[in-house]
Design a protein around this nucleic acid. Structure first.
Lengths: 343, 343
DNA sequence: TTGTATGCGTTATCAT
DNA sequence: ATGATAACGCATACAA
């Protein structure tokens, strides 16, 4: 036995008095094995402190035990929460997390991702919005034979490739909450054009209005790009209207915070003069004054489910309940930024 | 030539009419090679679209081309900015980023990290605070023969293993700014016990007081743990004092935001009744009302430098100027949360 | 059920 | 300077 060196499968086999293949089977949980042999081998593995070499496995299997997170610089909070959720699942497994950001907009993005996939051959990839909405990307993964799961704000792929929330329904609920409070003149700060999440959230807003028999007025909407500053600019346009909207639904908390900021600058009291609802329930929502009513979607749970799908055998895990969970439900978190309209 | 399959080094060698080792040399930029041969091989590599297989390289070299980020759930903003900086350097190289969070406090943490390092054999690891302050961890890396760089708020290792800011000096400057504005009764919300960053920042605070001949009063300090809520609790204790401090230095922006929150709840006007300075210059600082004066430290630049050290050849890069950059300098960002004391 | 030979794609060793 | 051959550690096909 060599000292100070990692024991290999050969060492285990020699000590246990079996062949390498037998050891390999024990490791990979092959069912057809003599129980006594398995126990002896496992004991030797423990004694030697043997741990399989991932590099060698990767070479032989032509597939790495890495889960790649491909994203395009969306919300920082989101990237981190997704990482957290994925890592919770990956902990105590043989998998590791590879983070690979890309540039949406770059003309060579798809080619770069192809190279990445072909070189690293990750076990699976998790696609985050908004880049997860790119069908060509999904097709690329499929063509290469790389397991993939797309996260999104609506379902736009087969259930075994999709972890989705239901933003439309969630926003509809939020705006209905505003309507129930008595608001009729409800503005909305939209998300960036081309984002599926932005479209879904707008659709939910319009659905709620339609159901209440309130005409949709384009002038009551202003577009932002999910940033604080864009929220400020959009709010300024909306606050300049007369009459002003009595309530505002913002497509995310960040923009809602921008709107709150502008409101304070203008001496508008929230919620007395203006009710506001956000989306995401990030830390900022509860830290605002007044605390922001917002839509919470299960980011971490969705990331966990995605990771589970990725590592859980071929296809959706064996009788995995998670497969039936799509889409994940969101909750309206009622805090202090909504009251009946003035007057 | 097989179709639809990645060409291997063997294909290149065969087509170019040389041996595999020659191709390998071309790839690894060995100096001793016939110029004509090199060109021909490179042409073949281009023609075939050959790209070296990282798994095979990892096996042969017994070292992966992965940079591992080991952290212990500190500030979310920080983790993300560090990732951003590292990835900027790794982009267009053969390296990839592995994210590996750990649990400080877990008794088996060191053993788990050892296993991770021995299994994955990353090319290098980047240790983030506060876990980077753990000397046993650094020794472990050294013992295993794994390249490592520690990020920290002060220099506590050799320059070729350390990327440091100078929190003490930065905080001293910030508190001196308060003193110059006329404040004498300056409170501080401390960071969590045992954190080097917390110690350094407190030391900077005390240095500034000492230089100005102001006696350090323990009662003017309250401890937090870098979270918003802890900032609120600490601020409440401090605001209950009488006389109240006229200024407050907070060990990070998050806690400063908590303090601002409490001040607003109590009807204290900032900066008229109370001046506040934070630390980090995260997004929250500029979004507060009034915008928060705070200390900005070059998180991303430090991460970039760390990554450069990690991948830049053995030891500090060849005549790499970055090695002389330690510690990195911070800047006081003057916004609207500081004025002379009332009265 | 278990052992043997071979492949995976690269780098390293030793020749020439 | 270059070529043949042996690791590297594991998995797979096939034989026993």
């Amino acid at each position: 036995m060599k000292e100070g060196v990692q024991p290999t499968i050969t060492d285990v086999a020699r000590v246990a008095g079996v062949s390498k293949k037998t050891v390999s089977w024990v490791i990979n949980q092959s069912p057809r094995l003599n129980e006594e042999t398995r126990k002896r081998v496992q004991q030797v593995i423990r004694d030697l402190g043997y741990v399989p070499n991932p590099q060698a496995r990767a070479l032989a299997l032509r597939r790495n035990f890495l889960i790649a997170l491909i994203h395009d610089n969306p919300n920082a909070q989101m990237v981190l929460k997704v990482q957290q959720g994925v890592l919770e699942i990956l902990r105590d497994t043989e998998f590791e997390l590879l983070v690979h950001p890309v540039n949406r907009g770059s003309a060579t993005m798809l080619e770069e991702i192809r190279q990445f996939l072909e070189r690293q051959r990750p076990y699976g990839v998790l696609l985050l919005p908004p880049i997860s909405e790119n069908d060509s990307l999904a097709e690329l993964c499929a063509a290469i034979g790389c397991r993939y799961v797309r996260m999104g704000s609506a379902s736009f792929d087969n259930p075994d490739h999709m972890i989705a929330s239901n933003d439309r329904e969630a926003v509809r609920g939020a705006v209905e909450h505003l309507i129930e409070a008595g608001h009729r003149r409800i503005g909305m700060i939209l998300g960036p054009a081309g984002f599926r999440s932005a479209m879904e959230r707008q659709a939910g807003y319009q659905e709620a209005l339609a159901r209440a028999g309130i005409a949709f007025d384009r002038a009551l909407t202003a577009q932002g790009d999910y940033t604080f500053d864009s929220g400020m600019r959009a709010a300024e346009r909306l606050f300049d209207m007369s009459p002003r909207p009595t309530a505002l639904f913002c497509s995310n908390d960040e923009m809602a915070a921008g709107a709150v900021h502008v409101a304070r600058q203008r001496g508008l009291h929230i919620p007395r003069d203006l009710s506001i609802i956000g989306f995401d329930d990030t830390a900022i929502a509860s830290h605002l004054l007044p605390p922001l009513t917002t839509v919470r979607w299960p980011m971490i749970a969705m990331a966990r489910a995605a990771a589970q799908m990725l590592i859980g055998g071929p296809g959706p895990g064996p009788a995995d309940e998670a497969s039936g969970l799509s889409p994940f439900g969101s909750t309206l978190i009622r805090r202090a930024s909504v009251t009946p309209p003035p007057g």
